[in-house]
Amino acid sequence: MTEAVLKVENLQTHFFTKAGVVKSVDDVSFEVGRGKIMGLVGESGSGKSVSGFSIMGLVDHPGRVVGGRILFHGRDLVGLPDEEMRKIRGRRIAMIFQDPMMTLNPVLRIDTQMIETIQAHEKVDRETARQRSRDALGQVGIPSPDERLMAYPHQFSGGMRQRVVIALALAVNPKLVIADEPTTALDVTIQAQILYQMQKLVAEQHMGLIWVTHDLSVVAGLADELCVMYAGRIVERGPVGRLIDAPIHPYTKGLIGSVPSRNPRGQPLTQIPGMAPTPIDLPAGCPFRPRCARASDICRTTPETAEHLPGRFARCFHPHLEDAA
């Protein structure tokens, strides 16, 4: 792998609520290389979004990053002063949110929202910033960008809005983009367009991209590497093709088995028994233990991340190595 844009080491983000401490992100490590796409997959509540917000330094009260390091080009972002972090946010690391209907401020025109972003990071006059905004809109395939700059968000369709958001995020040439389920709220055809656009931009601009999603089928054709999260931990990490063809963690296997398109017709979909645990009282040891067919007594202790096969990491005592080897 080429030099890493981002290296997350043992990240821990906890929420201190009245009901107790919620370990939303617990000992998570991964890295993203230049021009690479890393898929972060998990169910809602697995901590994938919180991981993204932790990198951005935007964890809301009562949450806090309590441990680990977030190395961005070798510089640790954890504990950085607010003003330093603000300069990185948006400039070096951009974020795209899930619902394009909600991410743009409804009472501000598009040009206001784009120009303010550029001007927050670079000392350029309004006209230059406007030019660049227009170019950015054109780049993501928005027709007649000059007119559209003067419009309000509600005058765009969902897909167009997400393009605006992407244009906004990319207008300042970030080195890393965190996309938090950016296509979930969109129609399938538009999803495909956005995916294509993102892939193209990553390749052109040599940036790293973290694609957070609950939908394996979306990242399968997009990412270079996958991290599968369950209950605040990364349970499996590996190159996308091999991981999907032959998952080694029982949870990943269950997840892939429940995707319709990957199963032969006529065969029943497999289902993971039980419910995802509530993050407040996780079972001791491996959190997947109560739902796992392979669980044994040893699973009552926490498994460490281990490289079971070359490039294939998993937190499991009983990995599915038989198909993968």
Binding site: D82, L104, T117
Partner: peptide, 22 residues
């Protein structure tokens, strides 16, 4: 609590601009 405020912060705007404009 709305996403667009969080997004405004994610864009790297100063908190003054987030509060007084957004």
């Amino acid at each position: 609590l709305l996403d667009y405020v969080k997004f405004a912060r994610a864009k790297g705007l100063s908190s003054r601009r987030v509060i007084f404009v957004h």
